[in-house]
Design a protein around this nucleic acid. Sequence first.
DNA 1: GGAGTTATTCACCATATGTTGAATTATGCT
DNA 2: AGCATAATTCAACATATGGTGAATAACTCC
Lengths: 198, 198
Amino acid sequence: MTSTAPRRGRRPGAPDTRAAILVAARELFAASGFAGTTIRAVAAAAGVDAALVHHYFGTKDDLFLAALEVRVDPRVVLAPVADGGVDGAGERLLRVFLSVWDDEDTRLPLLGIFRGIVEPTGAQLARDGFMRMVLGPLAAALGIDEPEQRMALVASQLVGIVVLRYIVQVEPLASMPGDRLVATYAPTLQRYLDGPLQ
Amino acid sequence: MTSTAPRRGRRPGAPDTRAAILVAARELFAASGFAGTTIRAVAAAAGVDAALVHHYFGTKDDLFLAALEVRVDPRVVLAPVADGGVDGAGERLLRVFLSVWDDEDTRLPLLGIFRGIVEPTGAQLARDGFMRMVLGPLAAALGIDEPEQRMALVASQLVGIVVLRYIVQVEPLASMPGDRLVATYAPTLQRYLDGPLQ
DNA sequence: GGAGTTATTCACCATATGTTGAATTATGCT
DNA sequence: AGCATAATTCAACATATGGTGAATAACTCC
């Protein structure tokens, strides 16, 4: 019988093990958060020794940061939302939101970021930063009044969708087609953006 | 100088150390979740040796369950919401929601439960159970159509409020007076309960 | 084909964590 | 006063974890 156990030393061929580790890290951080993910679990998921994770990505914090890298520039993605003015901005925002969250490649890092924000582990900077970097500019571009409050309302609805649709995966929200979801939530977001505040 | 270090053995007086441990556990689980909370941290917060935590509450899972005990019966609290029928149910639901979440005694266990649901650690039963125990009966009492979907919409907004107001504590939501919050969100919930679905 | 570089694993280390059992002190009952 | 019981800490164990350094194997380039 031929031994299938991984021998020591470099493997034959040109496997992109670094990428495999990154994929595994994204999935685990997205599923279990920072504290709940161990380097050894990442290594096991990538079929690799734990030391190799350190070899490629230094400390665990570094790996977390690398796994959280989103290849989406919020300003670019949000531009079409802001361009059309306030009218219909709720619906356009929802479409952009879904295009990013329904794509697994972007969802996994975003889930990691979300878990990082919800966890208490030194994500203080993310807490403020997210508002200021994503929703703040959008509010400015839309030129709405009381931007902090309106954006907090918008965020509260979007965050709820994230939790129920992507984390807890409550039906029928988890399987609802994007168009239907947009149609359902657009009036809410639109009211938060330009409706009466109370 | 008199030694203030805790000597060995039973302490004089009748301190309710068990209760102190439970309070500390509630706060830490609420703030840091299950994985992020260590028995030693709970013990330190209660000014007690770690072994005493085990003495009173067995394993860490047992302590978690004990800390999550909510002294609120959902059926009792939700009764007035359901009694008035669908009209104004959104506003009444929000008032009950705030009365429970703005009270620290009930908020801490609820935060623990929430973190348990969001964390992946075997909270599968909580995921379904919460819907079926809290929102399901409410939907039945209100006699609305498509209860699963409407309740998921309601939950998505309420969960978003929990995250922004009580966990991340985003202003101005975190400090917003209850009345204002009710007035702001009531139309949304009411539409989810009896408005058109798309 | 030999030298250097890179990829990969193994064997450890220090620390943290959940948990247990014995030892010590106070309280309560008789 | 004396004894059982409860409360509390100490010491320790087994395990898991993040991290490091050396050893081994494959690849690259001359």
